[in-house]
């Protein structure tokens, strides 16, 4: 179903987005798994969709893959509605599904050869085996592969047809660190070649390394979206220190552009200032200067003073509403 009246990009536009999602809603009975999300992915761009289990990421990918008709909203891949996998999109899109959809009784080479023989203009089988480091496993049955090796085989199958759009649903799950880095290199090279990539992952480091833009979904909605630097900048810098024994929680100074909170960690009180503002490069310095001046005036030492930018994990946990659980503390908000 398409409800949007906005004009969609022409599929022939060379610099236009390869994937367009506008106000996508997806229902399962009375349950609304996806609630009006919108994003675009351009050729050569990797868009990471993050979120907790059940946030709606896989439903979004499956709708883009054409397995589900949207309850409402508009999807276009190269200007074409992907529902039902129209012939116009076959071979132009590839996917690594969340599970391993492999025929376990075939050998590794037979699996890739099958995928190779089913598409037009495929990549060479030996080249693919080498790319995903499975050359030495080519003759063994798929059922004997480890979880990480199976993910690499699925990735090889997804790349056979030289897709222009690639959906990667947790592609590195089960991989050892070396295989994960190899996969990251492959994905980076695909981006360089102009492939538009949609990635979902639970490894935030993966998104930090690969994503040009990212979104964090929670309960079917996109709560945060932007470039990594943009998201972290808007989330603020953190300045923490152990609260001096001679200072009460009410004695902490109020500083412009910073919000203070006190929490308990290792049986001690810790103060945290979250610094926000447009002057990303100097805002932490301004607040630290204020704190140092305040400590000198009070003749106290700010022990274990740390300044750090927000991490993607901070943002993720906040969005998921799990920050309190992660900290194991209940901060009193001040200022």
């Amino acid at each position: 179903m398409t409800t949007s009246t906005e004009p969609l990009p022409d599929r022939t536009a060379a610099d236009g987005p390869a994937v367009v999602v506008r106000d996508l809603h997806q229902h399962y009975g009375n349950f609304e798994a996806v609630r009006g999300i919108s994003f675009e992915i351009r050729p050569g761009e990797l868009f990471a969709l993050l979120g907790t289990n059940g946030a709606g990421k896989t439903t979004t990918i499956e709708t883009l893959e054409g397995f589900r008709r949207p309850s409402s909203g508009t999807l276009r891949v190269f200007g074409t509605d992907p529902y039902g996998q129209p012939a116009a999109l076959r071979g132009r899109t590839g996917a690594v599904l969340q599970g391993n959809g492999l025929m376990e009784d075939l050998t590794v080479r037979e699996s890739i050869t099958l995928a190779h023989d089913l598409v037009s203009g495929p990549r060479d089988v030996d080249e693919l085996l080498a790319l995903v480091a499975l050359t030495d496993k080519a003759r063994i049955p798929v059922r004997q592969l480890s979880g990480g090796q199976k993910r690499r085989l699925i990735l090889a199958q997804a790349l056979v047809a030289r897709p222009e759009v690639l959906y990667l649903d947790e592609p590195t799950t089960g991989m050892d660190p070396e295989a994960r880095h190899t996969t990251w290199r492959i994905i980076s090279e695909l981006k360089r070649q102009g492939v538009a990539v949609l990635l979902t992952t639970h490894y935030l480091e993966e998104a930090e390394r690969l994503a040009d833009r990212l979104a964090i979904m929670h309960r079917g909605e996109i709560r945060v979206e932007g470039t990594l630097d943009g998201v972290l900048a808007s989330w603020g810098d953190r300045i923490t220190f152990r609260l001096p024994e001679e200072v009460g929680t009410d004695d902490l100074p109020e500083l412009a552009g910073a919000e203070a909170a006190v929490g308990t960690r290792d049986g001690r009180l810790w103060a945290t200032y979250t610094v926000t503002g447009a002057d990303v490069e100097s805002r932490a310095h301004r607040v630290v200067s204020g704190l140092v001046a305040w400590s000198a005036e009070r003749d106290v030492v700010l022990r274990n003073l740390q300044v750090r930018g927000a991490s993607l994990e901070d943002v993720f946990l906040q969005v998921a509403g799990a920050a309190d659980l992660a900290d194991q503390s209940h901060p009193a908000r001040l200022g």
Binding site: E65, Q85, G94, G101, L102, L118, V119, A158, A161, Y167
Partner: peptide
């Protein structure tokens, strides 16, 4: 089956 379908 799903993987075969995404493979075209």
């Amino acid at each position: 089956l799903k993987q075969l379908r995404v493979n075209g």
